[in-house]
Amino acid sequence: MKRDAIVAIFFLLAFLFVSYAVTVKNVLGLGEAELRPLGEFYLSHSFAHEGLTSHSPEVVTAIVWNYRGFDTLFETFVFFLAIMGALSVLRLTEEQAKIVREIEGREPHRRMDIIVRATTKLVVIMIVSISASIALHGHITPGGGFQGGSAMAVAALLLFAAFSKFTLERKGLTLGHTMSAYAIGLALIMVTVLAPLFLYGGKILEINLLPGEMGLFNLDVGEYTAVTFGFLTVFLILGIPEWIFKNVLRREMND
C-alpha cells in the first residue's frame, strides 16, 4: 500500500509538470491557426502532381497507401502476426477439434428473444452497409479499409451476442471459411503491391502506375476483407465456451 502511494504521488507530480508544459508553455502547439510545414506539404502535393501520386483527393488515404505505403504494408503483416499468434496459442489438435465439434453439435439451439433478434438484424444490416461504403469509397471520402474492417468486426460481435456462435457456424461461418476469406484479402493486397513490378516495370508498391484509382481501390478492398475476417477468425476461436474448452484440455491432461 505504501509503495502504491509513492507511485501515485510520483505520477501526480509528472502530471503537474506535463500540464504546466502544455498549458503555459504550449509545447504541443495546440490551437494554432497555422499548419505545420509537413502537413502543408502533404496537403499541397497529394493531388497536385498528376501521375506521380495515387490520384486520391483524400489526403489521409494518399499518405497511408502512397507516401507511407511500406509502413502500412508492414503493419498489415504485424496484424497478420498478431492473429497468427492468437491462433497458435488457442490451437486445438485434430482430435480435440473433433471433440469440440461433437459437444457443440449437442448444444441446444439457444438464442435471445425476438425483440433483441429483430433489432440486431436491422442494426447489423445497417452496420454492414455503412462499413462497405466506408471501405469502398475510401479513396474519395473519409474512410478506408482499416476503418471499414473495424466497423464490420463490430457487426460480427453483435451477431455473436444475439444469435450465439453455434447458429452462425451452422449457417456456414466456420473457421475454415473465415480463414480462407482472410487469405483472399491478403492475396489481393500482395497482387496489387506486386502488380507494378511485373506489369508496368516499376518498383514495388508504385500504385500510381496502375490505371486510374484501381490501386487504391484494390488495396482498400483487400484491407477491408483482411481486417474483417482476421477479427472474425479470432472471435470464432475465442467464442468457444469456457466449459467445453476446459473439458477438452483436462481430458488431455488426464491421458
Binding site: 489521409v60 503493419e75 496484424f79 482499416f146 473495424s150 481486417v227
Partner: peptide, 28 residues
C-alpha cells in the same frame, strides 16, 4: 493536418490486434 490522422488510423488497428493477442494469452 492529415499527418496525425494517418498515424492514428493504423495505430488503432494495431492496438486492437495487440489487444487480441494479450487477451488470448490471458485467457489461455
Amino acid at each position: 493536418d492529415p499527418v496525425p490522422q494517418a498515424l492514428v488510423l493504423t495505430a488503432v488497428v494495431i492496438g486492437m490486434a495487440m489487444n487480441i493477442l494479450l487477451t488470448t494469452y490471458a485467457i489461455q
